[in-house]
């Protein structure tokens, strides 16, 4: 009896913290999404009414939501792929260069990582400014506006997102590579494997748990990207062309004070991310890997 209780006892502090910080807010989010809950209800100007799935019906019946969802998914996928590619490539590079360049690269990456998103976005925007930006001057583009076209605006944001999130991937993967026993790599090299082959057949499989974690992390981060879009495209771009779900939810929930509709968007995002993560984990497990 005692032994069955013991693990729970040890887990209790963590569970209490998790319960308070995670479960309760999610519960509130879900709860609010079933009510009509705007500023008028919060401050008591009007009674709160139960709406059932009304908010969800409104959301799912809105064409705008589906467009925003689609662009969010595509944009997040592009960000994740680019971040992982850049991060992994630079991690491999880190293991190949001498101490000084390694230190420089590491510091540069950590600098990017430590920069607050608002600052980073503002600086990027200034770099690409049509009137005062150095990029246009160097490339000889005159007063070309990067934020006017939909895809060029997304590209600009993507660059910033990759810039501020590749260091996490790089550092984590670099740590993973350092943990791979040298003999294995030596053996592969002796067998005449190319660099690419070593990465694909030796390093990547050994690093899979780490890659899994950074992939899931990146998916979650990039799906929820807010600051970069909000700052760089001025709240969603020309005619809302660069809206992503999180910015859209913010517009609905806070700017328009429709907390219940915003909550419904939050719940939908949560479900999508849960589905993606669980699906990915299941796929890995089917391949015989345990995280």
């Amino acid at each position: 009896m005692q032994s069955r209780k013991a693990p729970w006892l040890y887990l209790a502090p963590a569970l209490v913290v998790l319960g308070g910080l995670l479960v309760y807010p999610v519960y509130q989010l879900g709860l609010i999404s079933f009510f009509r809950y705007t500023q008028a209800q919060v401050s008591g100007g009007e009674p709160t009414t139960f709406e059932g799935f009304g908010n969800y019906a409104e959301l799912l019946g809105d064409d705008r939501f589906w467009q925003v969802l689609l662009s969010t998914v595509v944009f997040a996928a592009a960000c994740v792929a680019s971040t992982l590619t850049v991060g992994c490539a630079l991690a491999v590079l880190l293991t190949r260069v001498r101490a000084l360049p390694r230190l420089v690269l590491m510091m540069a990456a950590l600098g990017a990582w430590a920069t607050p998103a608002v600052t980073g976005s503002t600086v990027w925007l200034l770099l690409f400014d049509p009137d005062f930006g150095p990029v246009n001057r160097v490339l000889g583009l005159g007063d070309h506006s990067w934020t006017y076209g939909r895809y060029s605006a997304f590209l600009l944001v993507l660059l910033e997102v990759v810039w501020c999130s590749f260091p996490f991937v790089m550092v984590t993967v670099y740590a993973g590579i350092r943990a791979v026993p040298g003999e294995v790599l030596e053996a592969a090299a002796l067998d005449g494997a190319s660099q690419w082959r070593i990465w694909r057949s030796v390093l990547a499989p050994m690093l899979r748990p780490i890659l899994t974690v950074v992939t899931i992390q990146s998916v979650i981060w990039d799906f929820k990207v807010f600051t970069q879009i909000y700052v760089m495209t001025n709240g969603g771009g020309i005619a809302g062309q660069n809206l992503v779900l999180n910015v859209y939810a913010y517009q609905q929930a806070f700017a328009s004070s429709q907390y219940s509709l915003g909550s419904a968007i939050g719940v939908v995002m949560l479900l999508i991310l849960l589905a993606v993560t669980l699906g990915y984990l299941r796929l890995l497990r089917r391949q015989g890997e345990e995280l």
């Binding site: 509130q28 709860l31 609010i32 009510f35 809950y37 209800q41 919060v42 401050s43 008591g44 100007g45 009674p47 709160t48 139960f50």
Partner: peptide, 9 residues
């Protein structure tokens, strides 16, 4: 907990 919080204004 049954309904979201509302202030008495």
């Amino acid at each position: 907990a049954c309904a979201p919080r509302t202030s008495d204004n």
